[in-house]
Nucleic acid binder design. Structure first.
Lengths: 158, 158
DNA sequence: AAAATCGCGAAAGATTCTTGCGCGAAAAGC
DNA sequence: GCTTTTCGCGCAAGAATCTTTCGCGATTTT
């Protein structure tokens, strides 16, 4: 797996552009980064195969699709042995309301990013699924009011 | 702005496919959703113009790019009047370490998704920028250990 | 200094994108 | 109940893009 040292300035430009618009055509991308299309495509393929580009995703407007509730849940478990952590991690993958999840250190053990169509659905999930799941100790919930910033995972110096 | 009632089964399939692979060609997409390419492209354009598809993004592998620290910060402010909330929201947009941010209700006022190259950089940010920013009361931090689930924001019944 | 390696860019064929248009089905109106 | 309108699909064709091949020059290696 290539390290960041294998990437030159053009590779970084490619990553920045594709993080900003993942559906840009290769010719447009090649113009923006200052090389011709064939080597640009080869670089993109290399970045994909190296796993530096993990994939591409359309960003959807949740409220417009009837998903009015976005929330984060901080979960504390009773027991944090490796097997228990894996068990809970697996459980999160089976809950469609949980869109992405992180194992964390600190006051909590997991952070869940949840989306539901309405507050009732979300509350039912928290009470009947999440809080009553085996080994769950504490559940702290933060309902989102609005998104304040939304950029890709990696920062680029402009 | 079209509501979800304006979307038929094919539109939902398109959204699911593009959320899974935002760079899929239109012909591939049209094959998967069962219509020919031209109407498929028209539907995608309509979804984009309606704001249902907010954009496309390449997903980058942060550790492979030298970003080894991913963390979440829960921020409590002293004063939560509208002006103060907007001021802090604006401040988050100026911090490159903060990749996305939400205004939330509950025990905290903001949740920040942060990425940094190393722990020292992150700790310096928390102490010298975040905790010492005006109006900041409490800062609770959760360092991520690993990502456990990573799907798009919207769930689709399979 | 010679050889090898590497990545760029031109060229060409294959694929995809994009538009225009005709058709049929469903909805609206008389 | 029948006509008219509306709507969206799919064919076809031209434009744009993708993808491969290959030669060239620059840098590195020996």
């Amino acid at each position: 797996m290539p390290l960041k040292a294998d990437l030159d300035a053009i590779d970084w430009k490619i990553l920045r552009e594709l993080q900003g618009d993942g559906r840009m055509t290769n010719v447009e991308l090649s113009n923006r980064v200052g090389i011709s299309a064939p080597p640009c495509l080869r670089r993109v393929r290399r970045l994909e195969e190296a796993g530096i580009i993990r994939g591409y995703r359309a960003l959807l407007n949740a409220p417009a699709l009837g998903m009015d509730v976005v929330a984060f849940c901080l979960i504390g478990l009773h027991h944090q042995a490796d097997a228990e952590l894996k068990t809970f991690a697996e459980r999160t993958r089976g809950w469609p309301i949980v869109r992405d999840a992180w194992m964390v250190s600190g006051e909590s053990d997991f952070l869940l990013h949840c989306v539901a169509s309405d507050l009732g659905t979300f509350q039912t999930f928290v009470i009947e699924e999440l809080a009553s799941a085996p080994n769950v100790d504490t559940v702290r919930t933060a309902l989102t009011i609005r998104r304040v910033k939304d950029e890709g995972l990696v920062a680029f110096q402009t």
